[in-house]
Design a protein around this nucleic acid. Structure first.
Lengths: 201, 201
DNA sequence: AGTTAATGACACTTCACGGTATCATTAAGA
DNA sequence: TCTTAATGATACCGTGAAGTGTCATTAACT
């Protein structure tokens, strides 16, 4: 039915893209063990043989799909000018359907793909926390009027972690559990705004 | 090899316990799609036939295993006398291997078990947040000295959600991603103590 | 031009798993 | 006591999935 033979260079590139697109979709819906390469191949308009010559086995397909999707999501997270902008953008992007499905997949397979989970954390939450830390002064205590709190001065990274945990709070947990819809940009910005005063007084 | 015939009442009860024990272990390690009832049956010293007469199908076994394990974890979370005690106990229990494996399983299968995810959230995070809210005064602003912050007075539940998100912060995310070991009670208590001043000044 | 690499088509193997059937056996229930 | 329910053992069915082999075909590479 389709054309055979060795493909042109861009045909090959588009094929690889289609394979990963189909893999991302299938893994997001059915999980790793629940997805089949037959179904991914059919959905990509490609034969299973092609997938095996490209990736070798199913685990490599999963790995490549997670990596590419993570790159795509990170590319959409532009750095804002203010902390408020950055936080709002972060909340919006990380609560999107794509980001939640990716996060869920990596958590689900973390016991069987520990290296993938580590890379995901470094490039994802770890990177975001470092980004937030650049906006937080290093010496600001969390409650200047309270001497006890002033004694426990936290470095910027620790407070950036706390801020990140607040930005991805219960709303994010409910998203992972598929209980809430994705928030609008306005809702994301409002949530971000409600978190900031807790960390930067 | 083993004794046949109808079992005594407590034999039956122990059998059901063994089945769920084996199911919890297998689902925690291999996920839902990656687990097999053959392996669970063998591990429980029971035939597959028994599991089917008890639960009907694989999904029901998963449901029952999650429910029982959640009950068990919740039973170990005793209410402390002070907010500090409750928070420390919560952090310790919810970062345990068993709680993390359960949380991970429910997240992984949330798209395919939406009702289970909803029940999990109500009885788990939802319940814990309500517990925390009882220790938080309703009218306390998060930064009394700042008039802008004082204008955004949050009800106790919203601040309890923020506290819960802080208690299950980056450490919990890294636990879900299988990147960190379970914290000791001392570490859990220290983490809880570091969260409280952000929410209750 | 000649060689090589990558593909589609397709059949094939191997294996595991969900679920069912049967039957002897033994305790529970009436 | 007699019926019934629940089990172990065991075999089985149907399905689907991972991964491979082969071959004609066609573009890339030299």
């Amino acid at each position: 039915m389709a054309k055979r033979g060795r493909p042109t260079a861009d045909e090959r590139a588009r094929r690889l893209t289609r394979i990963l697109d189909a893999a991302v979709d299938s893994f997001a819906v059915n999980g790793f063990a629940g997805s089949s390469l037959d179904e991914i191949a059919a959905s990509a308009g490609v034969t299973k043989r092609t997938i095996y010559t490209d990736y070798g086995d199913k685990a490599a397909v999963f790995d490549a799909a997670v990596e590419r999707e993570h790159d795509r999501i990170r590319a959409s997270a532009i750095e804002g000018s203010s902390l408020q902008d950055v936080a709002a953008e972060l909340v919006f992007v990380l609560h999107s359907d794509a980001a939640i499905a990716l996060h869920r997949s990596v958590i689900a397979e973390a016991p069987r793909f520990p290296e993938l989970a580590r890379r995901f954390y470094e490039a994802g939450p770890g990177h975001s926390i470092a980004l937030l830390a650049r906006y937080l002064p290093d010496d600001a205590p969390e409650a200047p009027t309270d001497p006890a709190a002033a004694a426990s001065v936290a470095p910027a990274t620790a407070r950036a972690e706390a801020l990140y945990a607040l930005l991805l709070g219960e709303r994010h947990r409910r998203r992972l559990l598929a209980l809430d819809p994705a928030p609008s940009p306005a809702v994301a910005a409002a949530h971000a705004a409600s978190c900031l005063p807790l960390v930067i007084p």
